[in-house]
Computed example of a mutant assay.
Amino acid sequence: MAGDVYTVAGGKGGVGKTTTAVNTAIALQAAGRRTIVVDADLGMTNLSELLGLDHEPRLHDVLAGDAELGDAIAEGPRGVSVLAGRGTLESFAEADPSNLRPVLRALRRSYEAVIVDTGAGLSHETLVPAGMSDGIVLVTTPDEVSLTDAKKVGDLAERVDGSIVGAVLTKVRDDIDVSAVGDELGEEILGVVPQDDEATADEPLVVTSPDSYAAQAYRRLGTKLADRIDDPTVERPVES
Results as ranks from 00 to 15, higher is better:
L190M: 15
L28E: 04
E188K: 13
A64E: 06
K171F: 12
D41F: 10
G191P: 03
T140E: 04
Q195A: 13
E56K: 14
G222R: 05
A27E: 12
G191C: 14
S98I: 02
A150E: 11
V139E: 01
I164N: 06
D161T: 06
T7V: 12
A214L: 06
R33V: 11
I115P: 02
S163R: 15
G32R: 00
A21E: 05
A84V: 09
T126E: 08
P102K: 08
I136S: 04
T208L: 08
G76K: 07
L122D: 00
V192C: 11
I164G: 03
D54V: 04
V238A: 15
N46I: 11
K17C: 01
G11Y: 03
L127I: 11
R101M: 07
K171I: 08
A201Q: 15
A72P: 00
T24C: 02
V103K: 07
D197R: 15
A72T: 10
G32E: 05
R219F: 08
P142N: 10
E158Y: 03
D143Q: 08
G10D: 04
H60A: 12
L42G: 07
I229A: 05
A64M: 03
L225W: 04
V234A: 13
P77G: 03
T118I: 11
L156E: 03
N99W: 02
T223S: 13
V128M: 01
Y218F: 15
L185R: 12
P57R: 13
T170M: 09
G14S: 06
R159P: 08
V62R: 13
D4A: 15
H124M: 06
G16A: 06
H60S: 06
R220P: 01
D155Q: 14
D175G: 09
L185D: 10
G65N: 10
G11V: 00
D41N: 15
E144M: 07
E90D: 13
D4V: 12
A130W: 02
S91I: 01
D227I: 00
A157K: 00
A150V: 01
R109P: 01
V192K: 14
E187L: 09
G121W: 03
P232S: 04
A40P: 07
A215Y: 11
A31Y: 09
K17E: 01
R108F: 01
Y111C: 04
E235A: 09
V193W: 00
R109V: 03
A214N: 05
G131D: 02
N23W: 03
E112L: 09
